[in-house]
Amino acid sequence: MEILMAFVIGILFMSATYLMLSKSLLRIIIGTGLLSHGAHLLLLTMGGLKRGAPPLLGEHAETYTDPIPQALILTAIVISFGVTAFFLVLAYRAYQELGTDNMERLRGTERHE
C-alpha cells in the first residue's frame, strides 16, 4: 500500500513541479495546491498505513491508527489553506494593478520600478 501511495505522491509532486515552472500565475497556484496535497499525503503515508480503528477511544479496538500524523496534516492543511487564500487574492490584485498574469512580464528591471 505504501508503495502505491509513494507512486501517487511522486506523480503529484511531478505535476506540481511542472505546473510551477509554467508562465501563467494561475497554473503556478494550482501547482502549489498539488504540492501541498502531495506533502499531506506523504505525511499520512510516512506515519504508516497499518490497519487499525480510527483514533477514537470509543471504538474499543485492539489497535488504532497513528493519531500524530493526522494532527500534523490537519495543522498543515489549515496553514496551506490560509496561505493559498492569501496567494489567490494577491494574484487577483496583481492582475488588477499590473494587468498581466504572465510571469515573464513580471520581471523587474532598473528602468521601471
Binding site: T32, L35, L43, M46, G47, P69, S80
Partner: peptide, 17 residues
Amino acid sequence: NVISSALFVITVGFLYS
C-alpha cells in the same frame, strides 16, 4: 516560501518515519 514550507513538511514526514 510556499515551496520551501511544503518541503519542510515532507522532510518532517521522512524524519518522523
